[in-house]
Design a protein around this nucleic acid. Sequence first.
DNA 1: ATAAAAATCGACACCGTGTAGAATTTGTGG
DNA 2: CCACAAATTCTACACGGTGTCGATTTTTAT
Lengths: 209, 209
Amino acid sequence: MPDQPPTRGRRGTERKGDVRERAILDTCEVLLADKGYDAMTVGDIAQGAGITRGALYFYFGSKQEVVTALVARTVEHLWERSRATAAADEPRRAIAAAMQRTVELWNAHGPVMRTAIDVSSTVPEIGELWDRTADLFIAAITAVLERAGIRAGGEPDQAAAMARVLCWMIERTFYHASQESRENLQAASATCEHIWLTSAGLHPPGQPA
Amino acid sequence: MPDQPPTRGRRGTERKGDVRERAILDTCEVLLADKGYDAMTVGDIAQGAGITRGALYFYFGSKQEVVTALVARTVEHLWERSRATAAADEPRRAIAAAMQRTVELWNAHGPVMRTAIDVSSTVPEIGELWDRTADLFIAAITAVLERAGIRAGGEPDQAAAMARVLCWMIERTFYHASQESRENLQAASATCEHIWLTSAGLHPPGQPA
DNA sequence: ATAAAAATCGACACCGTGTAGAATTTGTGG
DNA sequence: CCACAAATTCTACACGGTGTCGATTTTTAT
C-alpha cells in the first residue's frame, strides 16, 4: 500500500522517482504531439526521459498506462476549473466562459486531448476518463438549457438529449479545429457557441439584420 | 456458393480471386464488429476467409489496406445515394431524408463506420476517404442552410461554418449512439435533426406548446 | 495439353512489448 | 564511516504480430 513514510517536516515526499515520473509524462506529451500514439514506442519515451525501457517499466506497467496517466493529469486540470463556474453565472455569460476555458485547454494540450479521443475505444481506462469528463460537460449544458426553458419536447429529458448532442458537437469540432490553428479553433468555438445559444432559444446579443 | 460457374457469354471476368477478395472484406467486417481493430490480427482475417496469412498478402499489402478497402466499399455506397437527393427536394423533406439514410447506413455498418473514424488519424488513406465523405455532407448541409437564408452573419461563409459544425455533431452523435442500440440511434437522430432545423431557422413542424 | 498467370503455402527476419533477475544507487541508522 | 534495505536502473530473454521470399500448386486461356 502507498503509505506515507515518516516524512520529516514536509519535504520528504519528493522522491527521485517523482521527478522521473513527471519527466516521463512530459516526454510522452511531446512525443504524442510529434509522432502520434502508435508511432510512439516505449523505447522512445524512455529515451526522451533519459532512462532505458526496463527502467520505465518500473514506473508504468505499459504504454497505455503512461498515456492514461497523462490524460488523467490533463483532464483533472479541467475538472477543478469546471467546479468553479458550475451553474452559478447568468446563462449567456456561463456559456461564454465555459467555451473560453475549453479553448484554452485545447490550445495548451491539443495533442493529448486528441489522443485521448482516438484511443478511448481501445483503452478502457481512458474511455472511462473521457466519458466522465463528457458527463460533466453534459450536465453543465443541461443546466443552462433547462434554465432557458427547454423541457418543451415530449420526453421529460429533452434538455439532456440536446445537451449530449451539443457536447459531442463541441468535442468533435474542437478535435478537428485544434489540428489546424488557434485562429481556426477560436472561430469554430464561436460557431459552436452560436448554435448552442440558438438551440437554447437565447438570441445572440449583437446580431445584425 | 451462389456463383455462376458457366464462363459463357459475359461472365469470364469473375476471377476466383474476386470472390476471395470479397470473402476477406466480409470476414474483416465481422471481425471488426467482433473484436475491434487492434485485437483483430491479419491471421484472424486470413483464417476467417479460409486461407493463410501468406495468401492474404497476395491480395492486400497490409492490414490497413484491407480495412481501407472495406471502408471504401462502405462509404461508396453512400456517395451514390447522396447524389440522388442532392439539393433537389424541399428543405425540411431533404433533411429528414438525409438523416434517415444515414441512420440506415449506421445501422447496417456501424462497426465499419466507427473503425473508420477511429483510425482516420493513423491511416492517412482512410482519413482522406472520410474527409471526402464529410465534405459531401457539409456541402449538402450548407445548401440547405443557405436556402433557409443563413448568410446573416458577418463572414461570407457563415453557412459553411455552421454546416461543418453540424456535420461533426451528427458524426459524433451517431458514433456513440450506434454503439448502444437502434432505438438510441433513432432518438439521437431526431435530436440532431431538431437542432439542425432550429439552426436553420426552420421551426419544427408538429411542435406542441 | 500445355504454358503462362493466378493463387497459395511455409519459413524466415524484424520489431515492439512485457518480464525476470542481477546490479547499482540512494537513504538511513548505528 | 559502514552496513543494510529500499528504490532505481540495467541487460537479456521470450513472445507475438508483421511483412517478405521463393517454392509450389491451382486456374485460366489457347
